[in-house]
Design a protein around this nucleic acid. Structure first.
Lengths: 197, 197, 197, 197
DNA sequence: GATGAATGAGTCTTCATTCAT
DNA sequence: CATGAATGAAGACTCATTCAT
């Protein structure tokens, strides 16, 4: 039942992380192979022993991080919790993972958003996320915890958009405050809205 | 009390719009000066009569669009409406403007997000937006329409993030559906949340 | 009735000739764009205003030279001369043209021979030549000047191969002797062979 | 009086043949050390245990093939045959050897022709060939079989050039027909020429 | 003002060659 | 001897920017 992942040499991951750092600092286009090489302490040519080209580095980076991310996500929502707890766990997990890996957070938010030239496989990342949300919300509706009169397509975007907005702000603030502590207040807003009662 | 705007020649705007189109299609980095020149029907060199450099074009484009955008915003929230109506007007205006100018929507969402190299002035765009939100929410609290126990910093991001999430989805779908119709359901979610009552 | 050739700017030809010189000196692969640029007194980038890439330079060079070459060929064999005179004129023309343009001679003989990656259009150069030979030989057979029991496919190669062998030797000798004077003795060998009578 | 040839290990020849194949397929410049290594089933670095560098491989390849080739040549013209028979044997041997070893044929015809950077030793290959021709022709003149009024320098090129032309054509046709059968008709053309009598 | 030809700095990428294991 | 990972020099090509016309 173990993860069947082909083991990559250390240098592969070394380059991958260096790339993450450089991409986060400069963005895909301004980042140069030389900078990534220097950051990971190898020669330029060495990069090409492990990656097809510059785009491939970004792709592999995102794939690698996504696998970790979604594994964490899945663990966060498995079990018999009620929908509202699951939603809270999901958001908490999301913020925790991004806080722990700010390079990923930056690259993910800035590079993956609108690139039409990035493999659609990477774009599916958010699809997985949205599917998890759908599950949770439907479960919540069945449990009677969540409203039935929800336009699912919108709600999913509403939830994901708000988290990402929070993350973007945190990133823009150079991660100076605790992102994870936003989870509970955020979920509370999802659930209750801002109207006085 | 007249508008203190230096009048720009037509060609300036022609280039600006061409740039918007090309930036939207290819992104800042893949877009070339030649393409912008061709799109606007001028010579490459002409662009440098009106803009300092490539980044300046993006900057001017955003400034120009922002001015229009915030003028519309301001009109949307002026008057004596109650806070919930103003919030609805703000969101409606936001979605309307972006739907009407998809180039701006794409450029704004994809290029402006994380560029550390873009003049901070442009980043202030969202500050203005957030300030409007603050005003509205505070008014709502004073009116008793909105909850008092809100962490303002989070709520603003919550609202803006959700709108942007909805816009991003619309852009990714090539603008195939009506964005503006999302305004009311979205505001309803802001106000009431997703919890069943 | 004038040649309908699109006029190219001087710089196009300047680069073309520089390329010919560099290709002749170093061969296509060892020749660098920088060297060609330097030889023609322009910047590296300028080359790309006139040529798609390095291979394109070779291709254009060959096309340009071929046009001149075959125009000369055609003039050499037109008219009402008998076949043996035409053959002599053809060979004479061939040697004259190559002697006058040693860069072309070298590039043609060394680069065009075996490159599978060169557009077949260029390979057709020798086809035109072989067709001219066919015409001449058939005319000669009709006139009774040339033998009828000739395997045309072989004879054509026999004639062209021998001329090229002579040219190759001349090139290898750095063009130190008069190539054109080889024409008559060569044709005499074609016609009479080396057997004593 | 034994052959003073240093015995080379099998791997040397294995690499040599692999190189011949790869050179024939791609040409010296497009062929990579890695491809040659793979073709011969050794590691890249191993090649440098047997060869100084890439050029040296080509050089050794040509030397090796030349030795075999000229050994065959010498056998073809030794004995007391008359000059015309020797000439025929020489050409026959040439075509036979090249047909049997198409890699050599391709490499020889395409790489050796014009390389100024290839050791002159390799260029001497054709010198040996031309010397053999000289011997044969002079013998033929002494025997009265061949014309006395021949410009030897030209005749040699005439003969070699024509054979090579025939070989080139055969190579370009992917060796689809029988090259050896060209020997007799070709020699017949050498001897009698194409003029009707 | 307008042009667009020219520039050349900047990058990715390849691959012959080396060398620690 | 053999390996093949690592190197880094070299070169094709792009494109923002300039400037003579």
């Amino acid at each position: 039942m173990q993860k069947e992942k082909k083991e990559r040499p250390d240098k592969y991951y070394s380059i991958l992380n260096a790339a993450g750092t450089v991409f986060a600092r400069l963005g895909l286009h301004k980042a140069t192979i030389s900078q990534i090489a220097q950051e990971s302490g190898v020669a330029d040519g060495t990069i090409y022993l492990y990656f097809k080209n510059k785009n491939d580095i970004l792709y592999q980076f995102m794939s690698f991080k996504s696998d970790i991310f979604f594994e964490a996500m899945r663990r966060a929502v498995e079990g018999n919790d009620s929908a509202d707890v699951k939603l809270r766990n999901l958001i908490l997990c999301h913020l925790t993972e991004f806080q722990q890996d700010r390079d990923m957070a930056i690259v993910f938010q800035s590079e993956v958003r609108y690139r039409r030239d990035i493999a659609s496989q990477i774009k599916d990342i958010s699809k997985i996320y949205l599917d998890l949300l759908t599950e949770i919300i439907e479960q919540g509706q069945n449990e009677g915890v969540l409203r039935h009169d929800l336009f699912m397509g919108l709600v999913k975007r509403f939830v994901l958009g708000a988290v990402e907005g929070v993350i973007n702000t945190w990133v823009a603030a150079d991660g100076k405050y605790d992102l994870v502590s936003m989870a509970d207040p955020l979920v509370e807003l999802y659930l209750n809205g801002i109207k006085a009662r």
